[in-house]
């Protein structure tokens, strides 16, 4: 697995780690991290392609369109724990800009 660990990716991983077993919505993650859709979704897509992220459609109530939900896979949770949130201002580690193989 090969995921570019940009500060934004670390922010997303951190947002998932808060409740790693819970499903999250795209807009919810966007609000939590402050990332725009154009930044957030490519990260989610890459994570899903690398099997770090589970995706599912919500079982919506009648008449309401379903929402797409995300949560970390066990590998994703382990990966997130191995790469803690060093993105926070003043805590940017070297790994934040590097390429990490897992």
């Amino acid at each position: 697995m090969n995921l570019r660990l940009s500060p934004q990716t670390l922010m997303v991983l951190d947002a998932f780690l808060e409740e790693s077993a819970a499903w999250k919505y795209g807009y919810e993650i966007s609000r939590g991290t402050g990332l725009k859709s154009g930044t957030l979704y490519p990260i989610l897509m890459r994570m899903a392609e690398r099997r770090l992220l589970d995706t599912a459609w919500e079982n919506a109530e009648l008449g309401k369109p379903p929402r797409h939900m995300y949560r970390l896979t066990p590998e994703g949770a382990q990966f997130a724990r191995e790469n803690p949130a060093s993105w926070r201002p003043g805590r940017l580690g070297n790994a934040a800009y590097g390429e990490v193989k897992g």
């Binding site: 919505y25 795209g26 979704y41 989610l44 897509m45 995706t55 369109p65 929402r67 797409h68």
Partner: peptide, 13 residues
Amino acid sequence: VWALAMLRELEFV
């Protein structure tokens, strides 16, 4: 699937 996901979220923005 990703385009549809963003479209669904639009209602909550």
